[in-house]
Design a protein around this nucleic acid. Structure first.
Lengths: 148, 148
DNA sequence: TCTTGAACCTGGAGTTACTAGAGGAATTAG
DNA sequence: CTAATTCCTCTAGTAACTCCAGGTTCAAGA
């Protein structure tokens, strides 16, 4: 018996992932290319939807596409050692914790900056001054790129 | 008397900002174009270094280039009302707090995921399973793009 | 069955904030 | 004066999409 198929628009609707993004994931090899109709339109199976959900969830967790690619490769080889999978998750956890620490520092500084505004005109407003004066704060080494 | 000037390499050294990035900021109009030598090399003044520090600090705080551009425009008009300046800082603070909240949720989920790994092989490892099963977690609306 | 409007196709450009490299000219230290 | 270093411009690449144009296909109603 034939399995039920879904158009790209339907997949988009049930996953919340934009049509373009679905095609994009296919293009970069995260999502396998589905069968096509005679008229060249994509027809997805349930397994594609599963895979897409996996990708979306991993992205939400902040995993890079490269990491997801590795995870997929690993998951397709059930006999491989589990360590690498765990390692990816662990590294991600570390990265997230670092981001939180950094952002917490930034929030504190922004709070100080916002609190310092009491003038009516820019000339009396301390925000710009504080921003110009790096020495007024004391976070990290400054070589950081504030990456997402 | 002539003011002291600095080569782009020197400015890079004292600010920690890459040479290419300095030129980039000039290109997008954040940093005014400095005078040039006869041989076409940039010669910066102290005010340029100040401005660059302002930009770098604001970027560290997570401000978008667009926001910095507005701040600069505002700062060059000292009679303008202060509200807009304050507003930018406030919005940034809100954004940072949101990111922290979101990342905290993600960290919790990643902790669960990492803790769930106890198998020796991928087939027994729960990480992939958990990632595939979105329903296992309960954060936000899912329509978020996990933007930086 | 035909028609129309929505959904689909491909290819390419745009986004943000840089970063890297090629190929060549200027500066500076010795 | 020469060699090493620094500088110049321009182009292209990065991540992870997003959007658009111009053209097809599909599905549902008349």
């Amino acid at each position: 018996m034939l399995e039920r198929t879904f158009s790209i628009g339907h997949v988009s609707a049930v996953t919340g992932c934009k049509v373009e993004t679905i095609r994009f994931y296919e293009g970069i090899g995260l999502l396998p290319a589905p069968e096509r109709t005679e008229g060249n339109q994509r027809r997805y199976l349930a397994k594609h939807v599963e895979r897409l959900r996996f990708i979306l969830h991993a992205r939400e967790l902040g995993l890079a596409v490269e990491a997801i690619r590795q995870l997929i490769a690993l998951s397709e080889n059930p006999l491989a050692p589990c360590e690498q999978v765990d390692e990816i998750a662990r590294q991600q956890l570390l990265a997230v914790r670092e981001k939180i620490a950094r952002l917490t520092g930034l929030a504190a500084e922004l709070e100080r900056i916002v609190a310092s505004c009491d003038g009516k005109r820019v000339a009396d407003c301390r925000v710009i001054e504080v921003l110009a004066d790096h020495s007024a704060c004391d976070h990290g080494d400054g070589r950081d790129k504030t990456r997402s």
